[in-house]
Amino acid sequence: MSEIVLETRNLVRDYTTAGGMFRQAKTVRAVKGISLKVEKGKTLAIVGESGCGKSTLARMITMIDPPTAGDLIIDGQKVDTAKGVSPELRRKVQIVFQNPYGSLNPRQKIGDVLMEPLIINSDLPASERRHRAMEMLKKVGLAPEHFNRYPHMFSGGQRQRIAIARALMLNPRLLVLDEPVSALDLSVQAQVLNLLADLQDEFGLTYVFISHDLSVVRYIADEVMVMYFGEAVEYGTRDDVFSNPQHEYTKTLFAATPRTDVESIRARLARKTAAA
């Protein structure tokens, strides 16, 4: 068995709504004890609908928010986010957000976006930083002349490429992808998914891929976890989950995904004629 990059044990996260002068503070449990393991070079997809806690889980794995309880283990090292994260550890986990329009600083040129992680985390000379940023730009399918442009000059798909490039600048071990293609058009979505697959092969990256789109998950994932109200109701290899879903909610989710094969269209049209 190969090495485990990410492991969580019973991860819990509570949110406390601010109690006012006349109100009691209320506690909401967003994530209710999630345990998972991801091997190097594999992709774990986390599926669920809005409000199921999948983004909260992503923020804990990326060490943005500390967990209320439970253990987060990255590369065999136990992490205590609340006590502060070492730069070395911070470097290992990077994130790509859903909305390509909000994830880039509108006042920062693309070159600066890519070089910022290096400025913060390394003491490379400016020429070397520039060189590395240029290389990464080419790697994600953009051109050197894009280096000095501002984010608003790019389309959604291109921005997502830039966001991926930024995440890779520090050679992370683990990439958390929070719905990276759900804001993109279908044809662009395919390009970005291909890019992600290529990068995974090249750098041996491990992905945690968060999505609500089952067809994307089926395409990209090795393992799948289905979340429902903060709990993992289904967790297994892709083929197991898709061919033999155990939990009621997973079945509902599958049934709700639109079918595009010709047989189901024909059946639907037949039903319609019968009803009319």
Binding site: I64, V93, Q94, F97, S103, E116, I120
Partner: peptide, 26 residues
């Protein structure tokens, strides 16, 4: 709370940098 601030945080930006270099120009 915008994503680009979060991204800078994940990249390891210090508080000062976040406040003055990332947020303030916007």
């Amino acid at each position: 709370n915008k994503d680009y601030v979060m991204a800078a945080k994940v990249a390891g930006a210090s508080r000062m940098r976040l406040m003055f270099r990332t947020i303030l120009p916007n």
